[in-house]
Design a protein around this nucleic acid. Structure first.
Lengths: 154, 154
DNA sequence: TATTATAGTTTGTATCGCAAACTAAATCAA
DNA sequence: TTGATTTAGTTTGCGATACAAACTATAATA
């Protein structure tokens, strides 16, 4: 299996002759593809990928700053900046934690909620389109296999 | 309680079985998983993801700055900074283009080559481990499906 | 009560990324 | 051949991202 293709970007065309990429390359390249969709959709809404992830989390939760840091795998000081910038755009809001006056919870504003839904819808559209080359059967097979991996890691 | 996924709202596709995430969420989350492997491995070598992609490209090529910008989908000025920083660490080198004295090609230094191989090996190890929860059959099935998507996009 | 731990912010530094202005070399047109 | 234009790359200025260390304020504990 061609080790050289391991890290190549999604635009690479040099291994057309390969029937199959192998599990490593195929997953890495598929990840790049999805990532570039997230990036492109985010760009059209002036959102970075980290912000898209943030809004995905806030959709169902009102986490504290520290919980956000854990979810996003960021330093707490990075979360401060992330929330500051989103707050300046009126996308999220800090709220007081009633049980701990040191604590801060973060919620989506109405504007942020609306944006989150729009972005999620568009991402859904484009990721679905990505799988258009698969048959319905293959598509559900793929999502079952991916889900199995995700479940195993968690 | 089904964990509500990152990007899927309750009004879309809520009829889906809880066991399976659906194609959109499963691909997005799988992409996050792979991305976090790249990030973690990169971190252990003091490399960002963009640098990992850069080295993957330089492994087989001596591209010009502009070609790099296209491969990486970056502005040319961003590539200048990227190469500057890598050059300061003696990981890459600018060389003159013999046909065009404006042109600059980029190559890996011996140090950069060694690092590239190490990083690629470790990424291969960890991505393979990611698929450990699959049977051998499922694993090759997954890589076939992913390859089909990748091939269709190209 | 005094100490320690926790939540979050601030400050300082580096990377990343873009756009616009700029330099130098190459190409094209008259 | 000369003058205009295009092209390759860098520089500058800005904002976003990310971390670590120092700091503030509150909570927990001994």
């Amino acid at each position: 299996m061609s080790k050289k293709s391991l890290l190549q970007g999604e635009n690479e065309k040099s291994f057309r002759e390969e029937e199959n990429l192998g599990i490593v390359d195929s997953l890495v390249q598929l990840s790049y593809l999805v990532h570039s969709i997230l990036s492109r959709v985010g760009e059209s809404y002036n959102l970075s990928i980290i912000q898209i992830r943030l809004f995905g989390i806030l959709r169902d939760r009102e986490p504290s700053m520290l919980q956000l840091a854990q979810h996003l795998n960021l330093d707490k000081s990075s979360v401060t900046g992330l929330i500051n910038r989103a707050e300046h755009r009126d996308l999220v809001k800090r709220t007081a934690n009633p049980n701990d006056s040191r604590g801060v919870n973060v919620i989506l504003t109405p504007v942020g909620q609306k944006l989150t839904i729009e972005v999620a819808t568009e991402i859904g559209r484009q990721v679905t389109a990505l799988a258009d080359s698969l048959t319905e059967n293959e598509c559900s097979q793929l999502s079952i296999l991916a889900t199995k991996i995700i479940g195993a890691v968690r």
